[in-house]
């Protein structure tokens, strides 16, 4: 039998180590590196939101930028036009914008298409949203929305001043930790198991008496809300919402993170995002080298270790453990 509590504890330990690492960054690194670390933290959860669909529900999205961009623009709009609004409410509106886009799109696409056709629909819809942003004056057209202020949070008891980059960096780390925790709880809840089950055999789940469409839509809306939350949190950090964050290249990011790190593991997108950030930083002086390095690495990973880095490590560990007596088991996608 699976020891669920031990699994929870070990994942909590991993999360604690990760949090500690992010917490010391402002003490040991310069502001440029801290800025990058903040973006990496956001990218981790962005990647996880994509992987919720890919590994969880078995849905391939090529258009996650529409959620990320949607959340970012919603946040930018409320903070520019509605300065009195509590910041946390603004974040909720951002996440809600993503959920709404996902709901509208999901109702249409999940009924009509599956597999590659679904993926292409997500891409098309996301491009549509990008196009709308670049043509709408209200949304700043190609220039985007600039000068977005960093907030202060009034709690009644005390005031949290997040106007400095460092303070806001810590807010990002905490917000992303909360989001990742909520996602973990969802993926390990009965509903998370059910969504997994739908991916593995949808006819069987239908004949367990559940609506496949309803649960796939739930996963899709949750994933959209989470990606939009990431976008909304990022905007006050970079202080700009530009159309590029709704462009298709942004949609490829969570796919890269997940495939690099390992789709079969909850922490796969995190490993991928950190690795991606490190490559970006290491090659920052040489324009274009980052893309070449990432591209080569991805090619190698896909060809040589399709389970990603974490999948590879897990496979090696299992092989070592079983070596003396029994042959290596068939590789499965079972959750760690």
């Amino acid at each position: 039998m699976i020891d669920y509590r031990a699994r929870f504890r070990s994942n909590l330990a991993i999360a604690a180590c990760g949090l500690a690492a992010f917490a010391v960054v402002p003490f040991v690194a310069n502001s440029g590196l801290m800025f990058l670390a903040g973006l990496v933290a956001i990218n981790i959860v962005f990647g996880m939101s994509w992987n919720l669909l890919f590994s969880g529900a078995g849905l391939l999205s090529f258009g996650h930028a529409m959620f990320f961009g949607g959340g970012a623009y919603a946040m930018a709009l409320v903070s520019l036009h509605w300065p009195g609004l509590p910041f946390l409410l603004g974040l909720a509106i951002g996440a809600g914008a993503g959920a709404l886009i996902a709901l509208v799109f999901g109702v249409i696409a999940l009924r009509r298409a599956s597999g590659v056709y679904f993926a292409v629909l997500t891409l098309v819809f996301s491009e549509l949203i990008h196009l709308v942003i670049t043509k709408t004056t209200f949304l700043g057209r190609n220039d985007g929305l600039v000068g977005i202020p960093r907030p202060t949070i009034e709690t009644g008891l005390f005031t949290l001043d997040l106007t400095s980059a460092t303070a806001y960096y810590y807010f990002i780390v905490v917000a992303m930790a909360c989001a990742a925790f909520a996602l973990w709880c969802f993926q390990n809840s009965p509903a998370g198991r059910l969504i997994q089950a739908i991916r593995q055999d949808n006819l069987r789940t239908a004949f367990l008496g559940t609506s496949i469409f309803g649960w796939q839509l739930t996963a899709f809306v949750l994933s959209g809300a989470l990606a939009a939350f990431c976008g909304a949190v990022m905007v006050p950090f970079t202080q700009i919402a530009s159309p590029e964050i709704a462009y298709w290249t942004v949609s490829t990011q969570p796919i890269l993170f997940t495939l690099l790190g390992g789709a079969g593991n909850f922490w796969g997108p995190a490993v991928g995002a950190i690795l991606f950030g490190a490559i970006d930083y290491g090659t920052r002086a040489m324009h274009g080298l980052s893309e070449i390095t990432v591209g080569t690495l991805l090619l190698l990973v896909v060809l040589l270790i399709p389970g990603g880095l974490l999948g590879f490590l897990q496979h090696r560990r299992q092989k070592k453990r079983r070596k003396p007596t029994e042959p290596a088991p068939k590789r499965t996608e079972a959750q760690p």
Partner: peptide
Amino acid sequence: RIFPSMSAFENLIVAIET
């Protein structure tokens, strides 16, 4: 028709929880 990547026990858990 079962859920091939889950353990047999988890298959049952999914059915009961559903």
